[in-house]
Amino acid sequence: MMADAVLSVEDLIVQYDTASGPARAVDRVSFTLGQGERLGLIGESGSGKTTMGTALMRLTRAPGRIVGGRVMLGGTDIMALSQRDLRAVRLRDIAMIPQGAMSSLNPVLRIRVQIEDAIHAHEGRLPKPEMAARIATLLTRVGLDPVVADRFPHELSGGMKQRTVMAIATALSPKVIVADEPTSALDVVVQRQVMQTLGRLQSGLGAAVVLIGHDMGLIAQFADTVGVMYAGRLVEIGPVAQMIAAPRHPYTRLLIDSLPGIDAKRRLTGIPGLPPRLTDMPPGCAFAPRCPLATASCTASIPALQTVASGHRAACHLYPGLPALPPLTAKAAP
């Protein structure tokens, strides 16, 4: 564990109780986040990214359940807090920019009220002019005109709503911001602007960011560190340049290869097969059934994350046997 870690997650397990048995959407995920670090978490739909994001703030709702692990925020274990203390930590120390930022604003309340709500909950009532000035500053900081405060959400564009949500999330200068696909519903131009704003806010506040997404390109541009999730497990984590240039996990390799390029028109390559059902996980490595390099040991035991290079860890049985990932040849169709 890094000495200056602001967030450290240890063996976090989140489970959904379904009719066909428990589904572990997050399965023993561990990572640490240094001050001001930008971590990008990437994975397919259903890989447990969002579940993990909400679990970091203990916002998991039934049928979801956090069944194990610790989330240490500075010196406090979020899992051990009382409801009252938990509410105090939310937004003040760890804030969230939720997945559906477009629908994250209450449609019947003015923006001003929704920002005031957040500040009231943590700092009590402030004098009116002070509150107004504060709200104006927050809105200006995300590139919005302060008059937006008196609007209702339906009077704002998608990008403006997204910025408003960011203004609320950063209202109390949190140490950690969990941004769950903050740009998923925006067009690429607005997407870029919003990401730039997020980057500016992050460096201004010195906050650490967990950026959750499925867009490898977007994440690679923003993050310092990239984590890859597959079927609820963190399979690889490392510095962004190294992850792109020399991924160690076969899944990461295939994920990068399936990125469409704009200059070279080539056939889109996907990853053959489907992720496993969470209620019916294969023994051993979850990716083994789709992996072109799978061997007998892969179905025998679940590989643990192990250091493969400086600051770079991967959960694959190829290591430490091999120095690097061998070239992948498409697995012959059975």
């Binding site: 509410r87 939310r90 937004l91 003040r92 939720p98 629908s103 994250s104 209450n106 449609p107 943590h122």
Partner: peptide
């Protein structure tokens, strides 16, 4: 989502 976000803001359950 606005319910989740309201909880993430640290609002009281009553609010």
């Amino acid at each position: 989502d606005y319910i989740t976000f309201a909880e993430a803001k640290g609002l009281s359950p009553h609010r």
